[in-house]
Design a protein around this nucleic acid. Structure first.
Lengths: 328, 328
DNA sequence: CTGTTAGCGCCTTCAG
DNA sequence: CTGAAGGCGCTAACAG
């Protein structure tokens, strides 16, 4: 390993001179700067980032704890984060919480001392837990509003669920079910929006809890939903994955979509347009959400005055064939 | 921040004693050990990992450079890596190369000094480039065989493409096209397997280059493939994404699958079973591949004798409706 | 403008 | 069984 001392010796200057030059923290005579820079080139000197962190206290790294990296929504969020981080010369430490709160806690614990700040996407911890962490490290959550010093990036979940439900009503649906996701902010908002739209139309609500916000979660509920005594004529699923699980089973069971039952998801993952029939959903700007979360975090780390503590990025209705019906 | 000194003072021992105890590097009288441990508890002492790295030279971190985290195949690989890393108390530094070789090089450069070793998944660098890096840091590639000191985890790409093609032939297809991916090991192998099967059956080959190994890549080729003068009656795509792009356009163009043209992908991403018709593909054990890559890397870092320099994890045929036909 | 000198937090010989 | 002291690579006052 080649260190700053080697460079100093090669350039015939002191260590601190080298340090100041490579950090642009002080200017020197061009003669010296040249000598140092060419020594750096020649020896291919790379400052040791850990040593730097020890002495500065900054890591230039962001910790990212993600609910499930195999979920395309979260993969897109990570894409946004890492893109933004890379563009600002920050490094990303990623940890997959595998939907397990205890693991998540451990991961935060190991990540925290290695990074300047954290992004929590799809956290399953309590608001107060998150707020407690945020006291020691800047934190940005995605899809939560934990309050306190915690920054956050969210979508207009309530609104979009309201619109989707209203769309279903408009196409003549009467018995509209909602498949609820994990009991956190996003699902609560979506459910509230769904219920508000039903209330407005004086229609009954019908909420079923997903065992998991995944394809399998949707599949596992499909049988009773489709074959039950009181079959809904429309289903709004917590997310696209669950909706796609429903569609898969519907095909096997010869349940016609949208004739027998309309199905909508939320998220607009890249595969939502590919299933048959293409899935009605809400386009959530996942990559942009990731980017924004990273930007917010880095601004904070930069010591900038934070104008905004939380940012709402709008989702948009995306109507496709899975909810086609006669407009009233 | 609370340091090892604070613990030493609290426990009324020296710093080195604390160090030795928290690292299990030397035993002490149980009285002392108790004092130290409770001091650690009480003060919630967390050793600073960077300081530790500076003095030991080890980071306990793995660098992961991924072709595209939004691609479900690579997301699954990352899942496997991070799962394995977490289980061994290693941290993952993730960087998304966005399919850009120059960016990839930069990312490796910034990651390398911060980690003990690297996993390169879907690298677009040259074999010699990769070998050069591997001289300085242990490297495991996924889907490449760069030779030299580079460890790797791969699938039996040749074989699986051969089997898929033979399957298409068996169901009576005569004009079978292959959509080639990026010109690296995986695509070369798949193409070679495809060609071997055709040769065996004395059928003509028909290779078309994908602009990108994605849904959009498949879509962009679909028009000319389906509407061209010499329409193939079967298409083996480089990966599931491209195949799904084809299916999407086929639906719009009212091209019937598999009646007019059979379509097969490779990868078996979770969405391959959801499109209509469900996609014939090869199940590549992506999570397991990630796990294995991480395991290999950490074994090497552990100083273990490496029994195996590269590991082949078998893919399996996965026949679905998109290639149905009369068996001959 | 440049160099000397302390640290940063931790680990690790080497004495006792 | 325990502690003192030096060093890891780098930064940051403080002098000159």
């Amino acid at each position: 390993m080649i260190t700053i001392k080697d460079v100093a010796r090669e350039a015939e200057v002191s260590v601190s001179t080298v340090s100041k030059i490579i950090n642009n923290t002080k200017r020197f005579s061009s003669a010296v700067e040249m000598r140092v820079k060419s020594a750096v080139e020649k020896l291919e000197f790379k400052p040791n980032p850990h040593a730097r962190s020890v002495s500065t206290g900054k890591t230039h790294s962001l910790g990212v704890v993600i609910l499930d990296i195999a979920n395309p929504y979260y993969a897109a969020v990570v894409k946004g984060i890492s893109h933004e981080a890379e563009s600002k010369n920050h490094t990303v430490l990623l940890a997959d919480a595998e939907e397990r709160p205890n693991l998540e806690r451990d991961l935060i614990k190991t990540l925290a001392p290695r990074v300047d700040g954290l992004v929590l996407a799809g956290s399953r911890l309590s608001d107060s837990d998150i707020r407690a962490w945020a006291v020691k490290k800047p934190i940005v959550t995605v899809g939560r509003l934990p309050g306190g010093e915690v920054m956050s990036v969210i979508s207009n979940e309530y609104d979009i669920a309201f619109q989707l439900t209203r769309h279903l009503i408009t196409t003549g649906r009467k018995r509209i079910a909602f498949l609820a996701g994990p009991a956190f902010w996003v699902s609560e908002q979506r459910q509230a929006g769904y219920e508000a739209a039903l209330l407005e139309a004086d229609l009954p609500k019908m909420v079923v809890q997903l065992p998991s916000p995944s394809i399998e979660g949707g599949e596992s509920l499909a049988g009773t939903l489709f074959m039950g005594a009181h079959r809904p004529d429309a289903i709004l699923a917590y997310n696209d994955l669950a909706a796609m699980g429903l569609i898969k089973v519907a095909r096997d069971l010869s349940v016609r979509i949208p004739e027998d039952v309309a199905i909508a998801g939320i998220g607009d993952i890249p595969f939502a347009a590919l299933v048959s029939p293409p899935l009605t959903t809400a386009t959530v700007p996942s990559v942009e959400i990731g980017r924004t979360a990273a930007r917010l975090l880095m601004q904070k780390l930069d010591g900038q005055m934070m104008l905004e503590l939380s940012i709402v990025l709008p989702a948009k209705l995306c109507i496709r064939a899975s909810t086609k019906g006669e407009e009233k």
